[in-house]
């Protein structure tokens, strides 16, 4: 079970969180005309990298904040965690 440092609450066990997928996905702006392909990529296509991955976790049984976690998908090493509005990098 992973040990995730919630930037709001501190280190908490994985069972307090829900996984939210790739954090780099950006929703197209409202009312913007975009191609079918662009939209499909946003809705369906996700990278599944082996290695570093910036992902979303939702602290559902805690502060209910969505946070960003930079994690290695093969070793589970967590390099850093960020608040939702924080710039990563």
């Amino acid at each position: 079970m992973l040990y995730i440092k919630c930037p709001h609450c501190g280190l908490r066990s994985q069972n307090e969180f829900a996984y939210g997928g790739d954090a780099s996905v950006k929703r197209p702006e409202l009312n913007k005309e975009i191609s079918d392909q662009e939209w499909d990529e946003f809705v369906y296509l996700r990278k599944s990298p082996r290695g570093k991955h910036l992902e979303l976790w939702h602290h559902v049984s805690g502060c209910r904040q969505w946070i960003k976690v930079l994690r290695d998908t093969s070793t589970h090493e967590i390099f850093n965690t960020y608040k939702s509005e924080e710039k990563v990098g």
Partner: peptide, 14 residues
């Protein structure tokens, strides 16, 4: 639904 609303408020339209 609550998680869905929180997602949009916190991440998409802060």
């Amino acid at each position: 639904v609550l998680s869905h609303l929180e997602y949009y408020l916190q991440l998409v339209w802060p």
